[in-house]
């Protein structure tokens, strides 16, 4: 009752004021803008257009690796070290959404308590929301909003298991791959998808036995990759829990220059991918909403259920129809 009578104190929710708020360094505005853009509310692209000119200043580091490698703790230590060097840090922590319910349990903050209350830290948990390809775009948008806000460094942390999660770190300038001792088989399994995106390997929990073995595994793998022309990525040892090797790692991150060619090559791929992804989603979205509204989709579904039509010709016919217009 009390609450209803008095007008609740809340922020101005319009796109313009949110974008202005981000530029003015208002944390609540940044958080809300991220939500509205992530939710793809109508008008989000215009807001991102307004954000775009203020981006390009932040450096973006991706952190990936299997579950249990201590990525969140490592991210926390890296962020703490960066802040102690006077840098302002944004963190995007990605966890998977349930494909069945769409819900997600976002728990990375649990490992980042140490930095919760630092003024220069902003942490945002993101769920994958089951959109293949869409996630990397959403992550890119969040990165840009943080960038426009004035964050110097943006860390994207994600589990390196599914395609979705690997897509996310592609939004980064530099990708760290986190491994732990005793993970030999894991390294083999990771080879395929992750090898080409990792710029830096980290052996976390390097105080545990088995560190040398995993080091040998990674180096063996890197030798193979150098034979096919990839630059050899550095391998570093850390222990996030014991705060060992973090200073060196941050030093490496800040000074790392992947071969200029690779950097530009990657940049090219990233930009192309972004345009294609955006295009794909837009096309799909507009076609779907048209089909849904016109009732054509429902009709086609019924025809297929009634065995009057097969899905292949349904799609071809519907597309032909649109392209002709």
């Amino acid at each position: 009752m009390f609450k209803k009578m008095e007008k609740a104190k809340q922020i101005e929710n319009s796109w313009d004021s949110l974008v202005a708020g981000v530029r003015a360094g208002n944390v609540r505005a940044m958080a809300r803008l991220i939500t509205r853009v992530e939710d793809r509310e109508p008008g989000w692209k215009d807001a991102m257009k307004a954000i775009w000119p203020h981006t390009g200043n932040a450096r973006i580091f991706g952190i990936t690796g299997s579950p249990g490698t201590g990525k969140s703790s490592l991210t926390c230590e890296i962020a703490a070290e960066l802040v102690s060097r006077g840098l302002s840090v944004g963190i995007i922590a990605v966890d998977p959404s349930s494909p069945f319910t769409g819900g997600a349990l976002l728990g990375d903050r649990l490992r980042m308590k140490k930095i919760f209350n630092l003024k220069d830290i902003f942490i945002r948990s993101m769920a994958t929301r089951g959109m293949l390809g869409g996630l990397s775009q959403a992550a890119r948008d969040v990165v840009r909003i943080m960038d426009a806000f004035g964050k110097d460094i943006i860390l994207i942390e994600t589990v390196g298991v599914g395609q979705d999660e690997i897509e996310v770190v592609k939004a980064a300038d530099l990708v760290m791959m986190v491994c732990i001792p005793g993970q030999g088989d894991g390294i083999q399994a990771l080879k395929a998808g992750v090898m080409e995106i990792a710029d830096l390997y980290i052996i976390n929990k390097a105080d545990l036995p088995g560190t040398d073995e995993v080091m040998a595994d990674i180096q063996g793998m890197l030798e193979l990759s150098s034979e096919i022309g990839y630059p050899v990525a550095p391998v570093l040892k850390t222990s996030a829990l014991k705060n060992q090797g973090i200073k060196d790692l941050v030093e490496t991150l800040l000074t790392h220059q992947a071969g200029k060619n690779k950097q530009e090559f990657k940049r090219g791929i990233q930009v192309k991918e972004e345009i294609l992804t955006l295009m794909e989603r837009e096309v799909f979205r507009s076609i779907r909403s048209r089909w849904e509204h016109s009732g054509e989709l429902a009709e086609a579904v019924q025809q297929m259920i009634d065995k009057k039509k097969d899905p292949y010709s349904t799609v071809t016919e519907m597309l032909d129809h649109i392209l002709k217009e």
């Binding site: 703790s73 728990g107 649990l110 490992r111």
Partner: peptide, 9 residues
């Protein structure tokens, strides 16, 4: 000794 950190749910 460091402090215990909870693991994720």
């Amino acid at each position: 000794f460091g402090e215990f950190q909870q693991s994720k749910l």
